[in-house]
Write a protein that binds this DNA or RNA. Sequence first.
DNA 1: ATATAGTACCTTGCATTGCAAGGTAGCAGG
DNA 2: CCTGCTACCTTGCAATGCAAGGTACTATAT
Lengths: 107, 107
Amino acid sequence: MNIQFKKGVLELCVLSILKQKNCYGYELVNDISQNITISEGTIYPLLRRMKSDGYVETYLQESQEGPPRKYYALTAQGEQARAALDVEWSSFVEKVNNIVKGGAVVE
Amino acid sequence: MNIQFKKGVLELCVLSILKQKNCYGYELVNDISQNITISEGTIYPLLRRMKSDGYVETYLQESQEGPPRKYYALTAQGEQARAALDVEWSSFVEKVNNIVKGGAVVE
DNA sequence: ATATAGTACCTTGCATTGCAAGGTAGCAGG
DNA sequence: CCTGCTACCTTGCAATGCAAGGTACTATAT
């Protein structure tokens, strides 16, 4: 899997999943990795950035299977960011498609 | 335009255009930028990398409109790389779609 | 008790890529 | 001669993801 492709997109993935349900970091790694491999060394710094940007809020919850889990919940601001990123991504994919499939140049 | 999205994808764009026609660097910047903004500081190092990877070959051609143009032509190896990248990109986009649109987790 | 494996958190250093901002030169028009 | 366009190039920076490490809790097996 081309690592470079993931740049910036994993943020959209995390925000999209958090829209559906609150998650803890380790859970996000496993969920996302079913489609796109993501490592812990990626998710934790990413979640930290999102929190400092006000996109997510956190709370701790005890677990019987290990140490306490840090859950992440999407804020209103985070949802706004998700929607914007989603639009941007779709538009980007379309533009790449324009270039890759045939007539890249408008004439 | 999200800069991060472009990572790795611009290589596919360049290879795709070079499949259709030989181009010089400045021309690629203008062609691609009609869909996705790309700067000269990106294209020239990228073309250098591709050449050192054996994906492209170059030749100079005089111009009446300015200094000589350095044309790039796709090699067989470059075409192989393009095809592989194309497949990888399509697969990646699909996987992102899986995550973003609804059921990310297979259950 | 101790070791192993799974869960769950975290950090540091590195590699890669794209961009801004610069530089060099040729050509044409005023 | 100066400006603007063409066309090439390089250097330093910012952002992101990963590998490889560390810590600690729980459960199971030895």
